[in-house]
Design a protein around this nucleic acid. Structure first.
Lengths: 240, 240
DNA sequence: GACGCCACGTTACAAGCCGTTACAAAGCCG
DNA sequence: CGGCTTTGTAACGGCTTGTAACGTGGCGTC
């Protein structure tokens, strides 16, 4: 997620696509347009979006179906748009996984306000847009070069991180002060779900601490939250 | 956030409070009611909520003001409720920091759907240390570093707190001079409700006092209020 | 003032969580 | 194919934490 929200507008009506797009762009957002569900899928594959404005009535796969499909796996917020102002439609829309629902005709300012409310809410407290690639990151008393995977502390001592140590560290750096469960960490670092007695993350944390912590016996940066997970407790800043 | 969402309903009309409350409870949520802004504040101090349903028109501090106040610092989602269905009111509500807006009279099912949508969306990993994250807090004759969970007294003696000691202490530090029952403390620290003869909190207080009190036999900071609960009696200030 | 009840403090203990070490499998590079 | 590093799994031991049990002191009653 970058600094300006990136919105994907999906509607079969050219007129509405353009009107919505123009208004959002004018108010400082980045907008991409799609005419139907398959175009939308193509766009989703190409870039990252902060929110989808989705028309319910469309030729081909309709909005409800799209919504069900996306909200089941993904986590992209959806604002549904429709000509039908009926209460039942609104409710079904929300129950199907949309984050908000607006009936046409709508006031563009209300659309903007609702988009902002959702984006504000789902804005992750990440410092960086999910990618630290090519940056140099300061945290605690050291700096990480994300290109070379080299860690340099304030005294100039360097340490080379292994691939998995580096991956784990970046995942933590992207979410400072957030408690992450082992399951989340394993998912984020390796894309897999833990077995029943999986101690993989414990071990990786232990290895990472050897490189990152001044005193690995008394970890200050990567703290354990018993019964929940681990947490990077330090300021993180871009020092590129 | 525990397994069932905890909703705070703020409305000056008894009728609406009860109706909303009944419907939400029936649908598997936990509900607490407040009649006005100050009652709301009292409830907010006492337990943890996943969402606030907030009436705009209230005697005393009105909904918009409350909303501005809460959304500036906190991160509790707010759903605004109002008799005025005017577009401008909706927009102002959203722009003031509400997450959603619903006009009375409303369909309870839609209210539920919107609440679920917001709660679903804002379910995110826990920020460690609550509102005290990353700060250093002075109280009594000592200072707590919320990053490292280390307690330093005026003579420079350090003590490492365990996770549960730390959580209990931060909960108390966020509410100085307020008497909290064991039930509230257990809810705030562990997100669970006490069993019939649950002495967990007594024990944790006892352990915490060993680290915090100069003379653990005669506690001055964490005082016992017989028959009610515990209370942190000291000035608390941010010393970051 | 003595007694008993009850709330609370403390200790003891057991279960479970977590850190670490050791080892084996898998990858990497020549 | 062989040595090296990296990474997952297993095992041991220490520490944290909830539960139970016992002791103690306050408060009301007589």
């Amino acid at each position: 997620m970058s600094d300006v929200p990136h919105i994907l507008v999906v509607d079969d009506s050219l007129e509405i696509r353009n009107a919505v797009s123009r208004y959002l762009v004018k108010n400082g957002m980045r907008v991409t347009k799609a005419e139907n569900a398959s175009e939308m899928d193509a766009e989703l594959a190409k870039s990252r979006f902060d929110l989808i404005v989705l028309d319910v009535m469309m030729p081909g796969e309709d909005g409800l179906s799209v919504c069900r499909r996306l909200s089941s796996n993904g986590s992209i917020p959806i604002l549904m748009l429709t000509a039908l102002g009926e209460e039942m439609d609104r409710i079904v829309g929300l129950e199907v996984g949309a984050d908000d629902y607006l009936a046409k005709p709508f006031n563009p300012r209300e659309l903007l306000a609702r988009i902002k409310a959702i984006v504000r809410r789902s804005a992750r407290p990440e410092v960086f847009g999910g990618t630290l690639t090519g940056k140099r990151i300061r945290f605690g008393h050291q700096m990480l070069d994300t290109d070379t995977r080299v860690l340099v502390d304030d005294e100039g001592v360097e340490a080379q991180l292994s691939v998995s140590e580096f991956k784990l560290l970046t995942v933590l750096l992207e979410r400072p002060r957030l408690v992450l469960t082992r399951e989340q960490l394993l998912d984020l670092t390796a894309g897999r779900t833990p077995g029943l007695f999986d101690r993989t993350i414990d071990n990786q944390i232990s290895r990472l601490r050897r490189s990152v912590e001044k005193d690995p016996m008394r970890p200050k940066l990567i703290t354990t939250v018993r019964g929940e997970g681990y947490c990077l407790s330090a300021e993180v800043e871009d020092a590129s």
